Computed example of a mutant assay.
Amino acid sequence: MQTLQITLPENVLQDLASIKQQLQELKKEFKPKEPTKYLTRNEVAKMLSVDISTVHNWSKKGILKPIGIGARVYYKRKEVESAFVELQN
């Protein structure tokens, strides 16, 4: 079996090194996208330790944003968590 050696020009080698470095930096910063977690009204009520009627009232007031499919109502977990506001002392 014979070995084939290829000599690349210096500028190509530099480009390859630059690309390799950029890929390594990208790997450090890359975070896979988390799938959206959907919660039912009952799950939201249980999570927040409130009655389901409170979840309904918050939805009507626009505090929580319901989404649905058919007759089912869901809430995105991240949106429920982001509905919290910091209280001023």
Rank of each mutant, 00 (worst) to 15 (best):
E34Y: 13
K76Q: 11
I52K: 13
W58M: 00
Y75R: 06
L64F: 06
K78N: 11
Q2H: 07
L87T: 14
V80F: 07
N42F: 03
M47F: 04
T54Q: 10
I67E: 06
K28G: 12
N11L: 04
Y74T: 02
T54F: 04
H56I: 07
L87K: 14
H56S: 09
Q22L: 12
L48H: 11
I19F: 04
K20A: 09
V73T: 15
Q21A: 14
E43Y: 05
V85K: 14
E25H: 15
V55W: 00
N57E: 08
L39V: 02
L26K: 15
R77Q: 11
R77H: 09
Q5N: 15
Q88C: 03
K33H: 14
A83D: 02
L87R: 13
Q2I: 14
E34S: 13
K61S: 07
E79C: 05
E86L: 14
G70T: 00
Q21E: 09
T40E: 03
K37G: 05
K33S: 09
E81T: 10
L4Q: 13
K27P: 04
W58H: 01
K33P: 11
V80W: 05
T40L: 05
A45M: 04
L87S: 15
P32R: 12
A17H: 14
T54I: 10
A83N: 03
L64Y: 00
F30L: 12
V73W: 04
G62K: 02
N42K: 15
D15F: 05
K28R: 15
F30D: 05
K46H: 09
G70Q: 00
D51R: 07
K60Y: 06
I6S: 14
V85A: 10
D15C: 03
K76D: 01
P32C: 09
S82A: 02
Q5C: 13
L39G: 06
K60S: 06
E29Y: 10
Q14Y: 08
T7A: 11
K20Y: 03
S53D: 01
T7G: 13
R41M: 10
A45R: 10
R72F: 13
T54S: 11
D15A: 08
T3D: 07
E29M: 12
R72Q: 07
T40C: 11
E34I: 06
T7N: 11
E43F: 01
E10K: 07
A71E: 09
L64K: 01
V80G: 08
Y38M: 01
G62Q: 01
H56E: 05
K37E: 13
Q14W: 08
E25Y: 10
K76N: 07
K46N: 13
D15R: 10
T36W: 03
D51H: 06
R41E: 01
K65N: 01
A83M: 05
T54M: 04
V80K: 08
E79V: 11
L64N: 01
M1K: 06
D51S: 09
K37V: 11
Q2C: 10
E10H: 04
W58P: 02
I52E: 02
V50S: 03
E25C: 14
V44H: 07
